[in-house]
Structures are given as C-alpha cells and as structure tokens.
Design a protein around this nucleic acid. Structure first.
Length: 875
RNA sequence: GGGAGCUUAGCUCAGUUGGGAGAGCAUCUGCCUUACAAGCAGAGGGUCGCAGGUUCGAGUCCUGUUGUUCCCACCA
C-alpha cells in the first residue's frame, strides 16, 4: 500500500477527526464491573467568558492522563461540565443590564433569573465548543451544569443534612462585606493587598481632664467606637481607672479598658475599639461585653448611627471627621504607612467587616477527617509541598460563611413563618408552622456560595444522593487536576464534603498545576491585554502544537511562560513526525507481518523504544508529564529520525537486500509505537498518521499502549551501534576539521582486530557510508594497504582511516592528532586520579569502579593508537 | 509577622535516590544529501546566586545568606 501524504504537516487535518471520535462514541464510558475504572472529574468551567490558555494547560494535562489510561485498558471516564459561578456571572449580568439602563430591582428576581439562564445557554455553549477544539476526550454524554436539576437537588440535600447535624447554622457574626457587590464573601475570597495608607493620630478627652491618644487607619470608625483599650500593664491605667473617654462627633462616653490584645509598643499604646467593624475589636468586645454599633449601610455609606455623617460615603466621612477633630484640637498627626487591606478578589473593592445575620458551615468537625486522609497517606498531593498548605489551611480554619445576597445560584432552603418567624429547613415550602400553625412562609432570600455546590461535583454529577450504579462504580475518582489557586476554594471543600456526605474521599490524588504567564512572566490579564486566545492559536498552529508546547519540558506544577517561538518548535516536531511517516509510506511497498532477521541496529532501536515506553509510562504515572513528553520527543527526533532512519536507508533503497523486510517491519513498529506514546499529548496528528500507516485498527485512541522494556537487544548490540555512531561522528568532525567539502565523497577503511566488530561493520558498511558521506567503505583486520598518510579517526576498539590522497594537509593532521592525544591524556589523568583515591576505591559502588576501570583501559588503548599514527606521520 | 518556590549557557527552562553539567530558542560555520530548509551536519558559550558544612565525591544533602516571585496572616 502506498498512500500519498502532503509534504508538510498541516494542522488542518484536525478538523473532522474530533467529529469522528464523537460519532463513534469513543469518549463514552459505561458502568462495566468487569473493567477497572479510571476517573477524572473535570473542574467545571465558569460560564462567564471564554476559554483561556490556562484552561488549555490544565485540560491538556487531564486529557493526556485520560487518554493514556484508556489506552492501557482502563475504563476511562472524564466527566465535563460547567459552573454557574454565581457572583461572577451575576456581576456580568448586572453590568449588561446597566448598559441598558436597568438594575436588578427593575427586573425583579424572576426576570433576572431568566436573563441568567439565557446567559448560561450562550456562554456555556461557547466554552464547550472551544473545549472541543482542544481535542479533549471527555464523556460529553455525562456533561453536567452545577444548576442542573439533579445537582441542585444534591445541594439542597446537603444543606438539609448539615442543618440537621447542626453543621450549618445561622448566626450574627462579623463577616466580610463587599460594598460594591453588596454581598458577603467568605474568608477565602478576601485578598490581602498591600496599599499605601495613612495612620491617623487623634486623642479623646478623658472624663475629669486629660486626653488619651490613639491611632487608626480608618478614622470614620470612631463613630462606632464603644471603648478604648490599653495593655493591662500600662501605667496610664492607674490615672484613667474607672474613667470614660468622650467621642465628640456622636457625643458618646466610652470606657477605658485593659486588654492584652493591645501591643503597648505600637503607636500610642492605646487602641480604639470598634466591635462592629473589626475582627480584633469584635473579640475584645466579646470579652468586655461591649456594645456593637454598626455605622455602615450595605453600599458603604454611613448609616443613621453616624449622626451628622449619615449618608456620606465612608471615604468622604474619613476626611470630614479628621477635619472635625482638627477643629476640636483633638487631631495630632498623620503618618504614611504601608498596610495590608482586605479586598474582594473579584472586584478588588476594599472589603468592610460588618456584623450580619448569615449562614455558616461549622468547620472544625468537617476539617478533621479531611486532615486525616492526608496525614495517613490516603490522599496524595502533587507536588508534595502543597500538602503543607493543605494542612495549614485546615488547621485553625474558621467557619465558612455560605450565604450570599445574590439571586443567581441555589437559594437557601429555609423558610420563615410569616406569623412567628419560626424557621424550617426543607426541600419544599412547608405546609404548616410547627409553632403557630400558620401556613404562610417566606423563603430565605439568599443564595449559597457558588463553591458550596461545586464542592459536591465529584458525586452530585453521578446522581448522589441517589445510590446510582454510576456513583457506586465511578466514585471515588482517581485524580483531580486543577490550578493551585483554587486549592482552598474548591479542592479542600470537595474533600471534606465527599467524606461527610458519601463517606469516602472523592479522589486518590490531587495534582496541582501552575499557571500560564506571558513571555515576560506576568500573569495574563485583561487589564494588561497580554492574554493569548487559544482559539486563535489553534486556528493558526493547531491544537496539537499548542498542547505539545504547554506540556513539554516543563515541570507542570510550576508556572510556565507562553512563547510563540516554542509553539513553532512544537509545530516543527509535528512536521518531523509527519515526514518520518511519509518516509515510511514512500518505502512501504510490502507490509511484513513478521520481524524476520533483525540486525543489531533493528534490535537497538527496538530496545530503545521499549526503554522509552517504560520511562514514559513511569513518568506519566508520577504525573511528570513534562518529562514524559520530552523523552518521547527526544527519542523520535534524535534516535529514530536522525539515527535509525538514516542508517536504514541503504537497506530500504535496495530491493534485493535480504534485511529489507526486517528494516520495514522495524520502522513501522517503532513509528506506530511512537505514535501511540505520543497520542496522549498530540491526539490529532497521531490519529491521522496511525490511520494512514495501517488498516487493522480503526483508531489509535483505543489501541494498546506499547509494551514496555522489550528485551530485544543485548548490551552487545547497543555497544556496536554506539561504536557506529562514534565512527560516524568522528568522520564527520574530521572532515570538517580537515576542510573536506561535503560534496567530496571520501573513501573509508575501518580497521579492527575484533572479529565481532568486523562482522557488525560488514553489515553496516552502507549505513556507515551514507551517514559519514563516504563512497567506498571497507573493513579490514589490519592496516595493510593503507598508507601512513591516511587521516585516522580513533574510536574505541577500531580505527577509521580516510586516505585523502591529494587533499591531505600533513601539518593539520598532526595538529589534529596532537589535540586528540591531549584530550586522551586528560581523560587518563582524570581516571587515574579517581582510581588512586583510596576513599573512592574503598567506598564507591562496584559498578562505578568497574566503569572507571573500563574507561581507563579504553582510553589507554585509544591513546596507543593515536600515538602510533602520530609516529607514522612523523616519519 | 509566618510559610513556600525560584536563583544553572545570551533568553526560557530540564536535571528522579549525591558519582564526569543538558535541551529548545538565539549566535556562528558548512550543506537544496531523493522524509522533512518547518530540514541536516557541526561550533562557541556555564567558578550551577553567595558563604560555610557533611562526604572519597555536592547543581543535587545540611546551615546561613543575596535577589526574586507567590501563598497565608486580625497589629490599631
């Protein structure tokens, strides 16, 4: 069979392949008790926005893993889906409404949700289409969305379960409030940004005369002060004992208290206490039973408790109140400082601590087993260093605030009696109030944190809480692959949710990947405009090139940079692979089923292949995909293309050569196995080529992963091939040094006393010729017939002579041989030094010692030959 | 304030239990050798951030330190 392939690789081949895979149902996995499942849950993509190159990165890793395991015979199931991303989506819809001059309130809850569902249909669809261009082999029949009926039900069931156990509760606590998004956010969503700020120094008048000085970064919170604190050892306490300080703007007298929270060395050693707007002050307030005065409205303006400042924005009030204190003579000074300010990670608005009645998940009890599975080794984290981050976060974790003042999401299943306010948690509106028998209820207006539902992803997608056969078979999954930035938000929460609700951790391994940065190492962001659109890249270079670039030669857990040049390198490799295949097809007029009589070269490349298959397998199993891809890349380009294909050419070109079928068989075998090993990384091109070079199997996707470690060659074969390579390299180098033009085909005489080496080179004569650019190669056991003036290349256990006749430059040859002699002397010196080191001889492993001795002997032999050639020349 | 990563060729990065420093890109020199110029054959280029220590032997292990990035954190 002779098929025609285009001269160059063209990523255009990708279109059509994916559709065929889909049509054939290769991605779909069914429950099958006779097979071992391998399961990955795809982190659901947010329905906001588009696929970005970070998605490409993490999904390439997952696809490589799933394709690898599928080829190994596992029942591989990769479940895809999308996330409603409550706050992100809601903010985007609100923005879109604003452009139409509308607000949420104008639409009302129901109409707003209609808009949100329209949004979901549009952007959810876009991201799925884009994912498909990447070549991901996930089971689209099992695609889920976090607000699907089944998943929503799982959310409600979870809430009820935790509610009944007392693990979710409603409480009035200090929470993080985003005045811009006007919702609570969890601790995990607060980002600490270092900002330039001012430390303001003021003083309050003390009852009966005198002042107490203090400092603050938020002067407006003075309006909510209900105490001023000193360290218990502070001398001033004696003076101020039992007295109150006066807060002029609100005309309030506040106690002067002692609390060890105060650092007597910082600032003035006195701290104003605002229990309603600061976590520390809140704690102090609890200890001293202080009043909590909330001074803020939800939008960040001051409320009626702020007296004259009511209605003013908090930042404006800050200026005004400072001025008032100046006028009263109570202002001391300001001092510029850098301090960390909590901001909302979505909108970067400065977050305000406030006291509000919210829903929380009690964490202590849930965190414990999640810690245990890690410390006991049942849950593995790659890279390992994130284990520390994992345990640290779970240790001393505070309760998780889960209620959000948003509309888009799962509404809290709690109903309040309209008469007496009694609350009931239920799947549906209750029939009657257990307290007053009233039948009219109002559901809690809030929705749940988006991560509350994604925490259930590994099992809600499989039908939980129903005991489905899918849940039974596919749960727990094998590995979770995701970016390290959502370890807290998502990964940890999946772990404790899985353990609490299903009774088992949701996956065995966690693999955290880094992020893709721009070529200067900066994060890709809209504001910088340095983002790379993967769809555009795929359009120009193909998904395979993008995937290969992202995965090759990087430790995937560290951040990687995006370079267009590296994309080109990847594309070039694909072209190389393409052409190696074309080469095979051009010569493959027969398709031998049997290997026939293999030569040492064949056995060498086959055994290298087996070794590479083994190494790649090991690397992938250790989640070291970067090295795995690099190894098969190097094998294909260097060993297979640059060496094996070149040395096999004379056998192929000669129809009469008895070793021709073996060469063809080997070529095809090595190529097709290489394609299989490459397939997880570059699925499209490998499928295309695989289908061209054979017609027994209908897809490479389901073909068998290559056998590892085939022991086809002996160390002897490898040594002989190494010798051949040395001879070739030696001749090539010498030709350059002796300025022999490439067009000049030289004559080569290889001399060796070793009969086995002679036999090998007899068989490899033509290969040596083609590789070294020689027209005439002969093998001899001695130097007879070769003049003293032949250029010589000394390799281990042989010498290659090039009788250059008229072209010889004697001085140059002597110089060359002297240089070689010098090099060998240096080698000998090195080996001798090592071997005369008593410590080394006594303690080094035997293999190393033997290797050193062998090297010494080899170099001695080579030196002798070089010296003899030099002597011949000197005559 | 606590923790972690990184620091290796001009650039970007590999380097698995300690045993002669690697790749890609870039630079330079030759080649249109009938799979591939998206290619082939070569070359140059590194006191492995610095200082100690352990060891027969350290890029690799230990201690300290420089620069850099990130994460966590309630100092007004």
């Amino acid at each position: 069979m002779k098929k025609e392939m285009e001269k160059n690789y063209n990523p255009g081949i990708e279109s059509g392949i994916y559709a065929r895979w889909l049509e054939k149902g290769y991605f779909h996995a069914e429950v099958d008790e006779s097979r071992t499942p391998y399961v990955i849950m795809m982190p659901p993509a947010n329905i906001t926005g588009q696929l970005h190159v970070g998605h490409s990165f993490t999904f390439t890793i997952q696809d490589a893993l799933i394709r690898f395991k599928r080829m190994q015979g596992f029942n591989a199931m990769w479940l895809p889906g999308t996330d409603h991303a409550s706050i992100s989506t809601e903010v985007k819809i609100v923005d879109a409404l604003a452009k139409e001059g509308l607000t949420k309130a104008d639409l009302g809850r129901e109409k707003f949700l209609e808009r949100a569902w329209q949004w979901k249909d549009e952007f959810g669809g876009t991201i799925v289409r884009q994912l498909k261009l990447m070549g991901v082999s996930c089971d689209w029949d099992r695609e889920r969305f976090t607000m699907d009926e089944g998943l929503s039900n799982a959310v409600l069931e979870t809430f009820l379960h935790l509610y009944k156990k007392g693990l979710v509760y409603r409480g009035e606590k200090l929470i993080n409030w985003c005045p811009k998004c006007q919702t609570t956010i969890s601790d995990a969503e607060v980002e600490h940004e270092e900002k330039d700020g001012m430390l303001y120094y003021f003083k309050y008048p003390v009852q009966g005369g005198g002042f107490i000085e203090f400092a603050t970064t938020r002067p407006e919170t003075m309006l909510g002060d209900t105490a001023i604190a000193l360290h218990p050892t502070d001398e001033r306490l004696k003076e101020f004992a039992g007295k109150t300080a006066h807060v002029p703007p609100v005309d309030r007298d506040i106690p002067i208290i002692a609390d060890s929270y105060v650092d007597p060395k910082y600032g003035t050693g006195a701290v104003k206490i605002t229990p309603a707007h600061d976590p520390n002050d809140f704690a102090v307030g609890e200890r001293h039973n202080l009043e909590r005065i909330n001074i803020l409205n939800d939008d960040g303006t001051l409320n009626e408790n702020a007296g004259a400042y009511a209605g003013m924005d908090r930042l404006e009030a800050r200026k005004k109140i400072t001025q008032e204190f100046k006028d009263l003579g109570l202002f001391i000074k300001t001092e510029p400082i850098k301090h960390n300010v909590g901001t909302h990670d979505r909108c970067h608005e400065v977050m305000e601590p406030m006291i509000k009645l919210q829903w929380f998940v009690k964490m202590e009890e849930l965190a414990k087993p999640a810690l245990d599975v890690y410390t006991s080794g049942k849950l593995r984290i790659f890279p390992e260093r994130f284990g520390k981050v994992y345990t640290h976060w779970l240790t001393g974790i505070r309760d998780w605030c889960i209620s959000r003042q948003l509309w888009w999401g799962h509404r809290i299943p709690v109903y309040y009696c309209d008469e007496c306010g009694t609350m009931q948690a239920a799947l549906e509106t209750p029939k009657a109030c257990p307290n007053c028998s009233c039948t009219s209820f109002t559901q809690d207006p809030d929705t749940l944190d988006t991560w509350f539902s994604s925490a259930l992803w590994p099992f809600s997608t499989l039908g939980w809480p129903e005991k489905t056969k899918e849940l039974e078979y596919f749960y727990p999954g094998d590995v979770l692959v995701t970016g390290y930035e959502i370890l807290f938000f998502w990964v940890i929460r999946m772990v404790f949710s899985g353990i609490e609700l299903v009774g088992e951790q949701p996956f065995k391994d966690i693999m955290l990947n880094g992020i893709v940065r721009d070529s200067q190492g900066r994060k890709m962001s809209k504001s910088l405009g340095n983002g790379v659109d993967p769809i555009e890249v795929i359009g120009n270079w193909g998904a395979d090139a993008l995937r290969l670039m992202l995965v090759t030669g990087n430790a995937l857990e560290s951040d990687t940079r995006f370079y267009w040049e590296r994309l080109e390198t990847s594309r070039n490799f694909l072209n190389k692979l393409w052409n190696a295949s074309r080469f095979l097809l051009m010569n493959m007029d027969i398709q031998p089923d049997q290997p026939g009589e293999l030569t040492p070269m064949d056995r060498w490349i086959l055994s290298r292949l087996g070794k590479v298959a083994q190494d790649v397998t090991d690397r992938i199993d250790a989640y070291d995909l970067g090295m795995a891809a690099q190894m098969i890349y190097d094998f294909v380009w260097d060993e297979f293309c640059d060496w094996y294909i070149e040395m096999v050419k004379p056998r192929l070109y000669n129809q009469e050569d008895p070793s021709r079928p073996a060469a063809l068989w080997t070529l095809k075998r090595v190529l097709s196995d290489s394609l299989r090993i490459l397939h997880p990384f570059v699925p499209f091109v490998t499928e295309e080529i695989f289908l061209s070079i054979q017609d027994k199997e209908e897809t490479i996707m389901l073909s068998e992963w290559p056998a590892c470690g085939d022991a086809l060659s002996s160390p002897k074969d490898e040594a002989l091939v190494e010798l051949l390579k040395d001879a070739v390299k030696g001749v090539r180098n010498t030709r350059l040094e002796m300025a022999v033009p490439p067009s000049k085909k030289v004559k080569i005489v290889l001399v060796t006393e070793n009969p086995e080496t002679r036999e090998f080179f007899e068989g490899a004569k033509k290969a040596l010729g083609i590789l070294a650019g020689a027209k005439d190669v002969s093998i001899q056991s001695d130097k007879s017939g070769i003049g003293d003036d032949a250029v010589s290349v000394v390799i281990a256990s042989a010498t290659v002579f090039m009788p250059l006749e008229e072209m010889i430059d004697r001085a140059k040859e002597i110089e060359r041989l002297e240089k070689e002699k010098k090099r060998l002397l240096k080698e000998l010196d090195r080996a001798n030094t090592k071997l005369s080191n008593q410590g080394f001889v006594a303690k080094a492993p035997k293999e190393l010692l033997d290797a050193e001795k062998d090297k010494l002997a080899k170099h001695q032999e080579m030196l002798a030959k070089v010296e003899s050639e030099l002597a011949g020349f000197a005559k």
